[in-house]
Simulated scan of single mutants.
Amino acid sequence: MNLSARQLTIDLYHCKNSKLQEMEAVQYQLRELLEAADCNIIDLRAQELADDHYAIVTLFPEGHALLHVFPGLRYVAGDIFLCKEEAQPEEFFKAMRKFFAPDKTKTTFLKRGDFASPKDFKPTIKTRVAPLRKIHNTGAKVIRILARRNRS
């Protein structure tokens, strides 16, 4: 058997969606997203883990999806594992980014199931950090900071 899979981990910082507080709304969104991607959901469970966060776990034949949501921090951590080489977990990320509306994201792609010999094994990992807001008037801010320092 040859297994080649892809996994995407996501960190969403400073989320703006007010539904972050509503575990059922996030659970519904995750179900809708996975069903639209033709994932046959076996089980989807949401559980409040502490006063400050909850988790949603989804199992399907093609893999799994997991979200940890911290409403007080406006932070979401998650991953999706898909047991198909041609899988595109990036679509999952795009939909989550659209739903949660974060200021900054961090994604890491992992290629899983590489059965090369141990001496040839080098994991394929790509990490990307991207702020979603642009800084306005950067030049003017730098000039003000320098002017304050010169006065001191």
Rank of each mutant, 00 (worst) to 15 (best):
R6P: 00
Q7M: 09
Q7E: 09
Q7Y: 01
L12P: 00
H14T: 10
H14W: 14
C15I: 09
K16M: 14
N17A: 12
K19H: 11
K19W: 09
Q21P: 00
M23D: 04
Y28T: 11
E32P: 00
L33K: 09
L34K: 03
E35T: 07
D38T: 08
D38Q: 06
C39E: 08
C39T: 05
C39M: 14
N40T: 09
N40F: 13
L44Y: 06
R45P: 03
R45Q: 10
R45N: 09
E48Y: 09
E48Q: 09
A50K: 09
A50Q: 14
D51T: 12
D51G: 12
D51E: 14
D52T: 06
H53G: 05
A55I: 15
A55T: 13
I56F: 05
L59I: 12
F60C: 01
F60P: 00
P61M: 13
E62K: 05
E62H: 06
G63L: 12
H64N: 02
A65E: 15
L66N: 08
H68P: 02
F70Q: 11
P71T: 06
P71I: 04
R74H: 10
R74L: 03
Y75T: 12
V76G: 07
G78M: 10
D79N: 11
I80T: 00
L82P: 01
C83A: 12
K84L: 14
A87T: 10
Q88E: 11
Q88L: 08
P89E: 10
E90I: 15
A95T: 01
A95K: 03
A95N: 01
M96T: 09
R97S: 03
K98H: 11
K98V: 08
F100H: 06
A101H: 14
